[in-house]
Design a binder for these strands. Structure first.
Length: 372
RNA sequence: GGGCAGGUGGCAGAGUGGUCAAUUGCACCAGGCUGUAAACCUGGCCUCUUCGGAGUUCGGGGGUUCGAAUCCCUCCCUGCCCA
C-alpha cells in the first residue's frame, strides 16, 4: 500500500481525516492548488507552501505535450523537476476531453487530441494516460475518463459513463507503480440514476480512492449542490473522496457537508491573476476604482504575506500598471484564504460545529457580495 | 517678415462631399472566470433616452451644397525651414 487514509472525526456527513502518501501527510478536508504545467502559475513552491498548501495538482495532457513525461522522468520525476517535495496528484487528461473538445475525437479506444500548441497528434489511451503519470511519478494518479459537458443529455452521459468504466478498468490493469495510487472517477452529470450505476461499478473494482468528476462543467450551481450529497454518499466510507474542479468557497463547504475530503480548482489562482481576491466579506475586485486610495489590507485579520505587507491601494496600482507582482500577491492571498478555510473547517468538524460554521460563513459571503 | 506642414472624442491616430457619433490602439469604467489553450476574455466609454431613437460634435467665425470632419474665405494656434 502506498496510501493510508484514516478518519479522525465526523460531524454529520462531514469528515476530517488524514491521508498519508509517499511524499507526506495530507490533512482532510483539503484543497489542492492547481499546477497544471508543473508550476502554480506565478508562485515559487515556497510561496505555495507558505500559503499553507500540502498537496498540488499536475496535468497529464499538458506535461506530456511539454516538456514530455519521459524528459521529466529522466530528470528525476515531477517532484524533483518542479522542486515540490510534497504530495502531488496528477489529473489524467480527462478534463481536457471536456475543455479541449474542439481539439479532439473520442472512441472507446481513447481520446485523440490535436495539440493546442502545434497541432501534433496525441493519442491518449487509458494505458498511455497511466504510463505518463507513472513517468511523472505523482503520488496519486487519476484514471482517464470522459468528462461530458453540463448540458449533456442522458444518452451522452450514459455513453461517457460506459466509456469511463471501460477505461477505468484498463487503467487499473495497466497500472504498476507501487509508490503511486490510482483513483477512479465517477461520471454521470446531475443524473443520480446514472451516477449510482457508475459508482457501483467502480466501487466493485476496489480503487484506493474515488473522485466525482463532471461537476462545474456548465450545469447550474444549484443542480450541482443538489446532487452532491447523494453522489458523495455513493463513495466508500473508508477511502478518500475527491470532488474534481470545485470550486467557489461556498461550493467547498457544500462538498465537505456532503462528505468530500479533497478539492482542487483553478479559481483562487486564476481569479487572483485576474485581480479578484476572496475574503470573508465576499469577492473583492481589485481593479475597481474604489480601491485606489484604500490603505486596508486585502482582508483584515488575514495573516498571509500579501495582507501582512501591502494595501488594497498598492495591489490596485500593481494591477493597473500590469505589474507581475499583482497576480503573484493576489494568488498568494487566495491560496492562503482557501487553505485557511480548509484548516478552520477541520477544526470545526473536530469540534462538532461544522454546520453552524458553514451557515455563518455562507451568510457573510453573500452579505458581503451584496455590499460590493 | 517669408515659405511649408498641420489643428479630429482623455491621449495617440484614421477618415478627406453622403454608408460618420466618426476605424484602430492606449488609458479609463464595469462584469465574467469552477479536474488552467486564461497575468485572460466580454461589455461600456459626447449628452439625454419610454432603448425605437433624439440632440449637440471633428480649432473659432462665415460661406458653397439637397447634404460638410471632408470644399471655399477669414481669424486664432502649433511645428519645421528661410530671413
Amino acid at each position: 500500500m502506498s496510501l493510508y487514509f484514516t478518519l479522525a472525526a465526523r460531524d454529520g456527513a462531514a469528515r476530517a481525516g488524514r491521508m498519508t502518501t509517499p511524499h507526506g501527510v495530507v490533512e482532510t478536508p483539503q484543497f489542492m492548488p492547481v499546477g497544471t504545467q508543473g508550476t502554480v502559475k506565478g508562485l515559487t513552491p515556497e510561496m505555495v507552501r507558505d500559503a499553507g498548501a500540502t498537496i498540488l495538482l499536475g496535468n497529464t495532457y499538458h506535461l506530456t505535450l511539454r516538456p514530455g513525461d519521459e524528459l521529466i522522468a529522466e530528470l528525476g520525476g515531477l517532484h524533483a523537476f518542479m522542486h515540490w517535495p510534497g504530495p502531488i496528484l496528477t489529473d489524467s487528461g480527462g478534463f481536457q476531453v471536456f475543455s479541449l473538445a474542439t481539439q479532439r475525437t473520442i472512441t472507446d479506444a481513447g481520446a485523440t487530441f490535436r495539440s493546442h500548441i502545434d497541432g501534433a497528434k496525441l493519442d491518449l489511451t487509458p494505458e498511455r494516460a497511466v504510463e505518463i503519470q507513472q513517468n511523472l511519478g505523482s503520488d496519486i494518479a487519476m484514471v482517464l475518463d470522459e468528462c461530458p459537458p453540463g448540458d449533456a443529455d442522458q444518452a451522452v452521459l450514459q455513453t461517457a459513463v460506459r466509456r469511463s468504466l471501460l477505461w477505468a478498468e484498463r487503467c487499473k490493469k495497466h497500472h504498476s507503480r507501487k509508490s503511486q495510487s490510482l483513483f477512479a472517477i465517477v461520471q454521470g452529470g446531475t443524473d443520480l440514476v446514472i451516477r449510482r450505476a457508475c459508482a457501483k461499478e467502480l466501487v466493485g473494482m476496489d480503487f484506493p480512492g474515488y473522485a466525482l468528476g463532471g461537476f462545474s462543467v456548465g450545469e447550474s450551481p444549484e443542480a450541482m449542490l443538489a446532487a452532491l450529497p447523494e453522489c458523495a454518499a455513493l463513495l466508500p466510507e473508508g477511502k478518500p473522496r475527491y470532488l474534481m474542479g470545485v470550486g467557489r468557497p461556498e461550493d467547498l463547504l457544500a462538498g465537505i457537508a456532503a462528505g468530500i475530503d479533497l478539492f482542487d480548482c483553478v479559481m483562487p489562482t486564476r481569479n487572483g491573476r485576474n485581480a479578484l481576491v476572496f475574503t470573508d466579506e465576499g469577492p473583492v475586485r481589485l481593479r475597481n476604482a474604489k480601491h485606489r486610495r484604500d490603505p486596508a489590507p486585502l482582508m483584515s485579520g488575514c495573516g498571509c504575506y500579501a495582507c501582512a505587507n501591502f494595501s488594497r491601494a498598492y495591489l490596485h496600482h500593481l494591477f493597473q500598471a500590469g505589474e507581475m507582482l499583482g497576480p503573484t500577491l493576489a494568488s498568494i492571498h487566495n491560496l492562503a484564504y482557501y487553505l485557511g478555510l480548509m484548516a478552520e473547517t477541520r477544526r470545526q468538524i473536530a469540534a462538532g460545529t461544522f454546520a453552524e460554521f458553514r451557515a455563518a460563513r455562507v451568510a457573510r459571503w453573500r452579505g458581503g457580495a451584496i455590499q460590493q
